[in-house]
Amino acid sequence: METVPGTAVLTPAAPAPAAPPAVPSVHVRAIITWLAIFPLVALGMMASAPLTEGWHPVFKALTLTLVVVPTAVYLVVPRMMRAHASLAGRRGGRS
């Protein structure tokens, strides 16, 4: 196939890559994290109170955080971040 000088060959343009989702501000992330941690700590304190009644407060905090932190980091906060992203997307991306 020969090309004639001065003619352009048109090829279909590749679709533009999708923009990555906007990361919420540090303030929004702090609020979301607090909203995840506070209820977990409150429920954990009430649930563990009968079992840890005579324990030193440091050991109570240790056992509570051993449960609350992984639960928040791996389960609750990611779900809340997805929910926030979904809501922010519906409102036009404001976060």
Rank of each mutant, 00 (worst) to 15 (best):
L62H: 04
L75R: 10
V76L: 06
A61D: 02
M45D: 03
A88P: 02
P5E: 13
V9F: 14
P17G: 13
L87T: 14
A18L: 13
E53H: 13
T11H: 09
S25C: 02
R82M: 10
P21K: 00
R29P: 00
V26L: 15
M80I: 01
A47V: 14
P78W: 04
A36M: 01
A61C: 04
L51V: 15
R79G: 14
A49F: 13
T65K: 06
V69K: 10
P17C: 11
L75P: 02
T7I: 06
W34C: 14
F59V: 15
V77L: 11
A72I: 02
L75M: 05
T7R: 10
P15A: 15
I31R: 15
P17L: 09
T71A: 14
G92D: 02
S86G: 13
L51N: 08
H56I: 13
M46C: 06
P21W: 00
F38N: 11
L66T: 09
L64M: 03
L43H: 08
A8D: 06
M81V: 15
G44M: 06
R94P: 11
A83D: 03
M45I: 10
V28G: 08
A14L: 05
V9H: 13
L10H: 09
T7C: 07
V23L: 05
R29C: 08
T7N: 03
A49K: 14
S25V: 00
T3H: 10
T65W: 11
M81D: 05
S25T: 05
G6M: 08
V69W: 14
P70L: 09
P57H: 07
P70I: 09
V58C: 07
P5V: 07
A42N: 02
R29E: 06
L62V: 12
I37E: 01
T52H: 08
